[in-house]
């Protein structure tokens, strides 16, 4: 097993993570920030799942003829994390709705501009 394909997933995770992170800090639109956050968190889910994968292992079900199983625990953990991620996005979107009501915009620079005037 050469190193590169074995670690391919981790490379992808890092690329994805940085994509999301970049979107979060560079985008002006609050919705786009939340999308970035989702991508960022998605990368972490993949990271956990990758870590749980055992090479040539199967799903962890006791069955004749299989002795090599993937680790199920990360999957379980990440189920929790996904739920948390959804909740975070939900709260974020709810906040954005109220921001839209209060400011009439979801662009960060316009919001800052309005707060400065007041």
């Amino acid at each position: 097993m050469s190193e590169f394909p074995g670690l391919l997933n981790y490379w992808l995770v890092i690329v994805m993570m940085m994509t999301g992170f970049y979107a979060m800090i560079s985008r002006n639109n609050l919705i786009k920030k939340v999308i970035g956050l989702s991508i960022f968190q998605g990368a972490v889910y993949l990271f956990y799942i990758t870590a749980g994968k055992v090479f040539a292992g199967t799903a962890p079900i006791l069955e004749e003829g299989f002795s090599n199983y993937s680790n199920p625990l990360p999957h379980v953990l990440i189920l929790t994390a996904i739920v948390v991620g959804i909740a975070t996005v939900a709260v974020a979107l709810a906040l954005i709705m109220r921001i839209k009501d209060a400011y009439g915009t979801v662009e960060e620079d316009e919001i800052q501009h309005q707060d400065k005037i007041r």
């Binding site: 990271f47 990360p74 974020a92 919001i111 707060d115």
Partner: peptide
């Protein structure tokens, strides 16, 4: 104050980054 909303949102973004970093560390 409506600025509470933006403050909450900003905290949400940064807090989630922090939490996710912790999650990666734990992983």
């Amino acid at each position: 104050d409506r600025r509470a909303l933006t403050a909450a949102f900003r905290y949400l973004v940064l807090g989630s980054i922090g939490a996710t970093f912790i999650l990666i560390g734990i992983g």
